[in-house]
């Protein structure tokens, strides 16, 4: 890789303009320096504000502002807010709960909502620990799975709670 290509790769317009403007600054006459800084500051502020507003404007969840607060929460948490409130009353504290590992956030959300219950995270549903009294399968797919030895007792927005066979 040539020196020019390396400079462009590591520096890019960001660092190249930075070096150029810094050098230029020392050649600008003293009486014009404040104006020079103001010009640079204005450009940076304008660009940054545009970048910031662009991020906000394209947020789709702003539309949820018109919904009642419980619905906003329910939508963000993929139904887990109501689900955890409901199952917290159904699962006694002294039982062992198994939680199917979903992607990070739902798993952690359920875990914190079920505190101080004894929650074990399970990676698959084929070899389930024998000690599981309850099994939770959070938002994974739209299919309700048949789990041997377990009975489905709660289904809120496809968040599923199973209890070991009666």
């Amino acid at each position: 890789m040539g020196i020019g290509e390396k400079l462009l790769l590591y520096g890019g317009y960001f660092y190249l303009t930075l070096v150029l403007c810094s050098l230029l600054y020392f050649f600008v006459p003293l009486r014009l320096r404040l104006l020079f800084i103001k010009l640079i500051l204005f450009t940076c502020a304008f660009f940054t504000l545009v970048a910031g507003l662009k991020e906000i404007v394209y947020r789709q969840d702003i539309e949820q502002w018109y919904l009642p607060i419980p619905e906003r929460i329910q939508k963000t948490t993929l139904g887990l807010n109501d689900f955890t409130n409901e199952i917290n009353q159904k699962i006694p504290n002294d039982t062992k709960v198994c939680l199917k590992d979903s992607w990070d956030i739902p798993t952690k959300f359920i875990q914190q909502r079920l505190y101080p219950k004894n929650v074990t995270i399970v990676k698959d549903l084929i070899v389930l620990p024998r000690a599981c009294d309850y099994l939770i399968i959070p938002v994974i797919s739209h299919f309700v799975e048949n789990i041997p030895e377990f009975v489905l007792i709660e289904n809120i927005d496809n968040n599923l709670l199973y209890k070991r066979g009666l």
Binding site: R59, D61, I62, Q64, W65, R72, I73, K75, N81, I105
Partner: peptide, 9 residues
């Protein structure tokens, strides 16, 4: 408006 349109996630 933007922050309280959703829960922390």
């Amino acid at each position: 408006i933007t922050t309280l349109s959703h829960a922390p996630w």
